[in-house]
């Protein structure tokens, strides 16, 4: 009874998280790859090994405005425009943590659906389920650690 209720809830959540992910991914992709203040110029950045990507004027100005006139627009500094911002950091970190939770639930619930289809042995299913959700929990913890502590140094 309880198991079937939780399965129905997870099935429903899978649809909801999937729909949410579409909107969150649009935001994520836009900010990371297309917005000029935040992204390296995507079409200029096939670089040879180890070379730093170039950034547009908007990104360089943004970094200088936040970290002083000598600050260089390195990938780290460009990301820190958002994650070390005194005003918007909380908003961006909140977005990233929500994104992390939603993506992990959606991904690992889907993965468990696939595994349940191919693993017939109940013990095997239990092991696969515990193992995969342990990995998800581990990723949630290290992911949240990365997001929360970013820009503290």
């Amino acid at each position: 009874m309880a198991a079937s209720t939780s399965n129905a809830l997870n099935w429903f959540l899978h649809r909801i998280t999937g729909t949410f992910l579409i909107f969150m991914l649009i935001t994520h992709f836009w900010v990371q790859h297309y917005d000029h203040q935040a992204a390296s110029v995507t079409h200029e950045v096939v670089t040879e090994q180890g070379a730093m990507p170039d950034y547009p004027e908007e990104a360089k100005e943004g970094v200088r405005a936040r970290f002083g006139p000598d600050a260089e627009a390195t990938p780290y500094q460009v990301v820190m425009q958002r994650l070390a911002d005194p005003v918007y950091a909380v908003l961006w970190k909140g977005f990233n943590i929500l994104f992390l939770i939603v993506a992990l639930h959606h991904g690992f619930y889907g993965l468990n659906n696939v595994m349940t289809d191919y693993i017939r042995d109940p013990m095997g299913r239990l092991i696969a389920r515990s193992l995969s959700w342990t990995v998800a929990l581990g990723l949630l913890i290290i992911g949240m650690y990365s997001v929360i502590t970013a820009g503290w140094g």
Partner: peptide
């Protein structure tokens, strides 16, 4: 995508150190 998600979250632990993060992103542009 789940496999990518695992690698992606693991890779982003580089955010804790500027040097590591810059090196990682530079690699991503190859």
């Amino acid at each position: 995508l789940v496999v990518y998600l695992i690698i992606h979250i693991w890779g982003l632990t580089a955010l804790t150190d500027p040097e590591t993060f810059n090196a990682l992103i530079a690699k991503y542009h190859s």
